[in-house]
């Protein structure tokens, strides 16, 4: 347990040190929420549009999506931090230690997920005054959904980072993944109105289930597409598999 808690502590400590970076990180989702969300909200301010968005105003529909998007984007920071540690040599320090590597990397992933979640929580708190119909009681459970999502994609990011040498390569893959997965998640428009081929992609997109799960808690079952059990089940299995892969990968890691 020492290695796990120590590595989690380290990730949190680093985050606390980099306050200016934190501000930079939440600006992007904030721009989405304010300009994209408020820009469209008047356009969709009619009964027909409300029907499409499950009977709620657009900002309420969008808010869980922005939250999930923030967590999703920030999750890759875990991967980025592994590449940094490779480049700045700290990774060797962990690899040569007589501690369980599986625990070390799990600790990192948990630490980074908590960091990610903090940022998600800030964004979510900021959306409450803007969106009319969000349920305050859904705040904490939605963070739970966010945590599963964060664990899954931090695990994925770590596995990826362990195989990559350069920051550039990693960032390329992030860029390639991020926008399509966001568009195909039902975060900004409903899945039901998508063309069939897009729907198929949305179903295999993990982010879909996080957006949907967050909607369950923050808005209500009526706007959600899947049952809560499906959402949480998919996310839990995914997180377990991706974190498990990262742990196996780190166990075998040597230095280049």
């Amino acid at each position: 347990m020492e290695a796990l808690t120590t590595m989690a502590y380290r990730q949190l400590k680093r985050f606390a040190r980099a306050k200016s970076r934190v501000a930079g990180m939440i600006i992007n989702p904030l721009l989405w929420l304010v300009f994209f969300g408020m820009g469209w909200s008047k356009v969709f301010d009619n009964s027909m549009a409300r029907t499409v968005f499950g009977g709620v105003d657009y900002l309420t529909f969008l808010a869980p999506g922005i939250f999930a998007m923030t967590v999703f984007n920030q999750s890759f920071v875990a991967g980025v931090s592994v590449i940094w540690d490779k480049q700045f040599g700290f990774l060797k320090e962990v690899l040569v230690a007589p501690a369980s590597r599986k625990e070390s990397i799990l600790g990192r992933i948990i630490g980074d997920s908590l960091v990610t979640l903090t940022q998600g929580a800030i964004i979510l708190a900021l959306t409450f005054p803007l969106a009319e119909n969000l349920k305050p009681s859904g705040f904490i459970p939605a963070l739970g959904v966010g945590f599963l999502l964060a664990m899954a994609f931090s695990g994925f990011g770590v596995s990826l980072a362990l195989r990559m040498e350069s920051m550039e390569g990693f960032q390329m893959i992030m860029m390639v993944l991020m926008l399509p997965l966001t568009f195909l998640s039902g975060a900004i428009y409903p899945i039901d109105t998508m063309p069939d081929w897009m729907k198929a992609l949305a179903y295999v997109n993990p982010l879909t289930y996080a957006v949907d799960g967050a909607r369950h808690f923050l808005v209500g079952a009526s706007v959600a597409k899947f049952s809560l059990g499906v959402d949480l089940g998919v996310l839990t299995v995914l997180a377990a598999v991706l974190v498990g892969l990262a742990m196996a990968e780190f166990e075998r890691a040597t230095i280049g």
């Binding site: 380290r10 680093r14 040190r17 980099a18 700290f90 320090e93």
Partner: peptide, 15 residues
């Protein structure tokens, strides 16, 4: 049972 100082720096620069 071992300690090591690597050739290249291996400190956490942010901390």
């Amino acid at each position: 049972r071992i300690g090591i100082v690597f050739q290249d720096p291996s400190l956490d620069r942010e901390l």
